[in-house]
Design a protein around this nucleic acid. Structure first.
Lengths: 210, 210
DNA sequence: ATCGGCATGTTGACAGTGTCTACTTCTCAT
DNA sequence: ATGAGAAGTAGACACTGTCAACATGCCGAT
């Protein structure tokens, strides 16, 4: 019988959550490649193999972390939409809501590059996130939030209904591509002022082209 | 004095090129993470440390491989432009040249996903590619080829001159984003027919919005 | 209440990686 | 011809993911 037992019990209790939290911290600082089983296990004060009781392999942990990153993105989108001052004009309101979606996406990519890259670094085996995964407070994924914004545009008469199908491909691609080019791509060291210009141009072109 | 010497001399002769070639093969099959020093050294039939005589570290090899991948992309763009049947109408010609740029980009991403991902996986330390790097047969980078196409559009009167500055941000972002969403993102398992639809929509929106 | 099954966590091992230091071989300019 | 330096080798270390064998202790059936 041990005299002074270690404070930590043999069984962790909520190791799975602890590992995902640790992975989230690693991803935030260094991106998806830094989500390392042994480092996460160390952070959770647990032996390096304990993770295998909760995840089949490293990819499964990474996927869980990526799903949380996607949720964070959805949350930022929702917050930016909620922060809009109410506009009496429905058309203007719908437009500013769509604008907020795009700007929140780019803001998230800029302020949390590690999380942003991780959100889209889902391992090959897994298609994407299932329903109810990677969602924000309203239960909507970033993709669904964009779709809802586009629906509003139609309802308000800004976007012709015949252009609605597939509109998210254009909007999403443009904003996602810009974020990638800024973060990891050839536009990596564009100065902030030029970034703002590029952002405005991209959003304008999409708005005009939809 | 050895009686029957090994056919391979002690000094490789063009080890640097051999390593980049090996890295290119690895990148093609598995993407940038598969560009591994020891595997490339094995492919070049050389000890695992020989690479350090030609590259400071793994990132420097990866950068050399990425630069070649970017050149391949430029070459595909040039080929698709050259393959266009001549159109008497200058405006139509300029438009089809820009269209070819975008479609070649997406074709490259679809047919050579490993190379495409590697082209944009330049390690953090390095800004991007210097002048004369990542270029095609005409000495133009993908970015420059896009810019030339946009210049043509202005010259021919299709694109208003005041909209020319920054136009590559919009065109590039949209096409790059779509390629990323198809290859690694949530649109990974979109069926081919739907991919074609999405591609057409994205190109249309950009063309209309520019 | 207790006892055993089973989920949970640990230990140790292996192969693979990047990178360091020390060493060997060979080329080429003097 | 020779010796300095470029090019390649050998061995080591720390780190990773993953496997197999083992230890622990919770919880329900008895």
């Amino acid at each position: 019988m041990p005299i002074v037992t270690d404070a930590r019990p043999y069984h962790h209790g909520r190791l799975r959550e602890a590992l995902v939290d640790a992975g989230l911290a690693l991803a935030r600082a260094e991106g998806p490649d830094a989500v390392v089983l042994r480092a996460a296990s160390r952070a959770a004060a647990v032996s390096h193999n304990a993770a295998y009781r909760h995840f089949a392999d490293r990819d499964e942990l990474l996927r869980a972390v990526a799903e949380r990153c996607m949720s964070r993105l959805a949350l930022v989108m929702e917050q930016r939409q909620d922060a809009l001052e109410p506009d009496p004009d429905p058309a203007a309101r719908a437009l500013s809501r769509i604008d907020a979606v795009g700007r929140a996406y780019l803001e998230f990519a800029a302020t949390e590059p590690g999380w942003f890259r991780t959100a889209f670094a889902v391992p090959d085996k897994v298609n994407s996130f299932g329903p109810g995964e990677g969602v924000g407070a309203r239960g909507l994924s970033p993709y669904a939030l964009l779709g809802a914004g586009l629906d509003d545009l139609v309802e308000v008469g800004v976007l012709p209904a015949e252009r609605r199908p597939g509109a998210e491909y254009a909007a999403w691609s443009a904003v996602h591509g810009l974020a990638m080019l800024f973060n990891d791509g050839p536009l990596r060291d564009l100065p902030d002022t030029e970034r703002a210009v590029a952002t405005q141009i991209v959003l304008d072109v999409v708005a005009r082209g939809l």
